[in-house]
């Protein structure tokens, strides 16, 4: 049976991506269940001596990974000319928000033990926690306005609003960079990928501007 591209995305690619996005959650959840004796212990679900830190790391890094993959959709679309890729972007973004929330919840509960005094102080006093918390707050309006309805309602303003993803990604990587003790190799990898993804946009933008200036007045504005 052959499927149209449209149906292939709807019936195959999107469900597959949905399952793939749930794998890190399954990993963390499996570990916690194994810890509580609700699952047989196996190497895959062994969270080590400090399971709280491990789970915090799993969901935190998944958030960063998803943010970067979300930001890679547009460059990939432009490079490959495959416009359909845009259909996967919303799910990636919403999952990034989902994992950011999980990360914050693991921090509130297992990590800080819901000690609101300590949590408030952390958010106000610790720069790297302030950064992470700000990024999370900025993700909220994007998650809310991710539906078709909101896209229609906001029209041009939707795209403007969703450019918040750029500072969010910067804050996220910065948050990670600032909490490591000394070895910045891994945050550096994240920062490099982010720089390439944002640099690509800057370069395209400059190209476009140069083109518009040359062929003024513009008849149709190129869409991003």
């Amino acid at each position: 049976m052959t499927l149209t591209v449209d149906r292939r995305y709807r019936l195959v690619y999107k469900p597959l991506l949905f399952i793939a996005c749930l794998i890190p959650l399954g990993w963390a959840l499996g570990g916690v269940l194994a810890l509580g004796g609700l699952l047989p212990s196996m190497p895959l679900f062994d969270l080590g001596a400090d399971p709280v830190r491990k789970v915090l790391g799993i969901v935190g890094k998944t958030t960063l990974n998803l943010l970067l993959i979300t930001l890679a959709v547009t460059p990939l679309r432009q490079l490959t000319g495959n416009g359909y890729l845009i259909r996967l972007r919303r799910m990636l973004g919403v999952f990034a928000f989902f994992y950011a929330c999980l990360h914050f919840m693991v921090y509130l509960g297992p990590f800080q033990g819901f000690s609101w005094d300590a949590i408030t102080k952390d958010i106000v006093k610790r720069p790297y926690i302030t950064l992470g918390f700000t990024a999370l707050l900025m993700l909220v309006p994007l998650a809310i306005t991710s539906t078709n309805g909101w896209m229609r309602r906001l029209k041009k303003r939707w795209q403007k609003l969703h450019r918040l993803i750029y500072p969010i990604a910067i804050l996220g990587v910065w948050h990670y960079w600032w909490q490591v003790k000394q070895d910045i190799r891994e945050p550096l990898i994240y920062a490099t990928i982010l720089a390439v993804l944002l640099g690509w946009r800057l370069w395209r933008w400059q190209q476009r501007r140069a083109a518009t200036l040359k062929s003024a007045p513009p008849t149709a504005r190129e869409r991003t």
Binding site: L35, D50, R53, V55, P110, F111, S115, A118, D122, R126
Partner: peptide, 16 residues
């Protein structure tokens, strides 16, 4: 970068 007022004791469990 963080408070030293309390600590997480390894082995106390996930929700300790």
């Amino acid at each position: 970068r963080w408070s030293q007022a309390s600590e997480r004791h390894i082995g106390d469990g996930f929700f300790a």
